[in-house]
Amino acid sequence: LEELEQFAKTFKQRRIKLGFTQGDVGLAMGKLYGNDFSQTTISRFEALNLSFKNMCKLKPLLEKWLNDAE
C-alpha cells in the first residue's frame, strides 16, 4: 500500500512536470493501450480514492505511460 501511495504521488508530480493534464493521460492511454480512462479515474488514482484492486490494476499501465511519455 505504501508503495502504491508513493507511486501515485510521484506519478502526479512527473505528469505535471511533463505538462500533461489528467484528461491527456486518460486519452493517451486509450490510444496507446486500448484502455480508455476518464480524467476522473486518473484524478481518483492520484488522490488514492480508488479501491486497492483498481489501484493495482492501473499502476502498471500508468508506469508504462509515464516511461513512454518521458
Rank of each mutant, 00 (worst) to 15 (best):
Ala69Gly: 05
Phe20Val: 11
Ala69Asp: 03
Gly23Leu: 12
Gly23Ile: 11
Leu66Glu: 02
Glu2Asn: 15
Gln6Asp: 06
Ile16Phe: 05
Asn54Ser: 14
Ser43Ala: 15
Lys31Val: 05
Thr40Asn: 13
Phe7Leu: 03
Glu5Ile: 06
Pro60Val: 05
Leu50Gln: 03
Gln22Tyr: 10
Gly23Asp: 14
Arg15His: 01
Leu50Met: 15
Asp24Gln: 11
Phe20Gln: 09
Gln22Ala: 11
Ser51Arg: 08
Thr21Asp: 04
Asp24Asn: 06
Ile16Lys: 11
Phe52Ile: 14
Gly30Lys: 10
Gln6Phe: 08
Asp68His: 12
Pro60Thr: 07
Leu58Cys: 11
Asp36Ser: 08
Ala8Gly: 03
Leu62Pro: 01
Glu63Cys: 02
Leu58Glu: 02
Gln13Val: 12
Tyr33Pro: 06
Gln22Arg: 12
Asp36Asn: 09
Gly30His: 07
Lys9Glu: 06
Gln22Glu: 11
Leu50Ile: 05
Phe20Pro: 01
Lys57Arg: 09
Lys64Cys: 05
Glu5Cys: 05
Leu58Lys: 03
Asp36Trp: 11
Glu3Arg: 03
Leu27Val: 13
Ser43Tyr: 08
Thr10Ser: 10
Phe20Lys: 07
Gln13Glu: 12
Met55Gly: 07
Asp36Leu: 14
Gly34Met: 06
Glu63Thr: 06
Glu70Pro: 02
Glu2Trp: 09
Phe37Trp: 13
Leu61Tyr: 15
Phe37Lys: 04
Tyr33Phe: 10
Met29Tyr: 02
Lys64Met: 09
Leu61Asn: 11
Ile42Ser: 00
Phe7Tyr: 04
Gln39Asp: 14
Leu61Gly: 06
Asn49Val: 08
Arg44Cys: 08
Lys31Tyr: 07
Phe7Ile: 03
Asn49Tyr: 07
Asn35Gln: 13
Glu46Val: 00
Gly30Phe: 14
Glu3Asp: 13
Lys31His: 13
Lys12Met: 07
Gly30Glu: 11
Ser43Asn: 13
Glu2Val: 07
Glu63Trp: 07
Asp68Phe: 12
Arg15Pro: 00
Phe11Lys: 00
Trp65Asn: 00
Lys12Leu: 04
Gln13Tyr: 14
Lys53Ser: 12
Lys9Ile: 15
Gln6Leu: 10
Ser38Cys: 15
Ile16Cys: 02
Gln39Thr: 14
Lys57Trp: 09
Gly23Glu: 14
Gly23Pro: 05
Cys56Tyr: 15
Trp65Glu: 01
Glu63Ala: 15
Gln6Val: 07
Glu2Arg: 12
Phe20Met: 10
Ser38Met: 02
Asp24Glu: 12
Lys17Leu: 11
Leu50Asn: 02
Gly34Ser: 06
Leu27Met: 13
Ile42Lys: 01
Ala69Trp: 07
Ala8Met: 03
Lys9Ser: 10
Ala8Thr: 13
Glu63Phe: 04
Asn67Ser: 08
Gln22Leu: 13
Lys57Tyr: 15
Lys12Tyr: 04
Phe37Leu: 13
Thr10Lys: 12
Arg14Lys: 13
Glu63Pro: 01
Leu48His: 11
Trp65Phe: 14
Thr10Ile: 14
Ala28Asn: 08
Leu32Ser: 04
Arg44Ser: 14
Asp36Cys: 10
Val25Pro: 01
Asp24Phe: 05
Lys17Arg: 04
Leu61Gln: 08
Ala8Asp: 00
Gln39Ile: 08
Ala8His: 02
Phe11Met: 04
Trp65Met: 03
Gln6Met: 09
Ser38Phe: 04
Glu5Asn: 08
Thr40Leu: 13
Ser38Lys: 12
Leu62Gly: 01
Leu50Gly: 07
Asn54His: 13
Thr10Gln: 12
Glu5Tyr: 07
Gly26Trp: 08
Lys17Tyr: 07
Ser51Gly: 14
Gln6Ala: 14
Ser43Leu: 07
Lys9Phe: 07
Gly34His: 06
Lys31Leu: 04
Ile42Tyr: 01
Gln22Ser: 12
Lys17Pro: 00
Leu48Gln: 13
Thr40Arg: 14
Asp36Ile: 12
Gly34Ile: 04
Asn54Glu: 10
Ser51Lys: 11
Lys64Ser: 14
Gln22Asn: 05
Gln6Arg: 15
Lys12Asn: 05
Arg44Tyr: 04
Phe37Asn: 02
Leu61Pro: 12
Trp65Tyr: 03
Thr21Val: 02
Asp68Ala: 11
Lys53Tyr: 05
Glu70Val: 06
Ala28His: 08
Phe37Ser: 05
Asp68Cys: 06
Asp24Ile: 03
Asn49Ser: 13
Arg15Cys: 01
Ala8Val: 14
Cys56Glu: 13
Lys57His: 07
Thr40Met: 08
Glu3Ile: 05
Gln22Val: 13
Gln22Phe: 05
Trp65His: 02
Arg14Ala: 09
Lys59Glu: 03
Ser51Asp: 15
Thr21Cys: 08
Met55Cys: 05
Lys64Glu: 11
Asn49Arg: 07
Arg44Thr: 06
Glu46Ile: 01
Leu58Pro: 01
Leu66Ala: 09
Gly34Phe: 03
Thr41Cys: 07
Gln22Lys: 15
Asn54Ala: 14
Phe20Cys: 11
Asp24Leu: 04
Leu18Ser: 06
Ala47Pro: 00
Gly30Asn: 05
Met29Ala: 04
Leu4Phe: 02
Tyr33Asp: 05
Asn54Pro: 05
Gly26Asp: 08
Glu2Tyr: 09
Ala47Asp: 15
Gly30Thr: 10
Leu48Tyr: 08
Lys12Ala: 13
Thr21Ser: 15
Leu32Asn: 08
Arg15Trp: 00
Glu5Phe: 05
Leu1Phe: 13
Glu46Ser: 00
Pro60Met: 07
Leu1Gly: 08
Phe20His: 09
Gly26Tyr: 09
Phe52Met: 11
Phe45Met: 05
Glu3Ala: 05
Ile16Met: 13
Lys31Cys: 05
Pro60Gln: 06
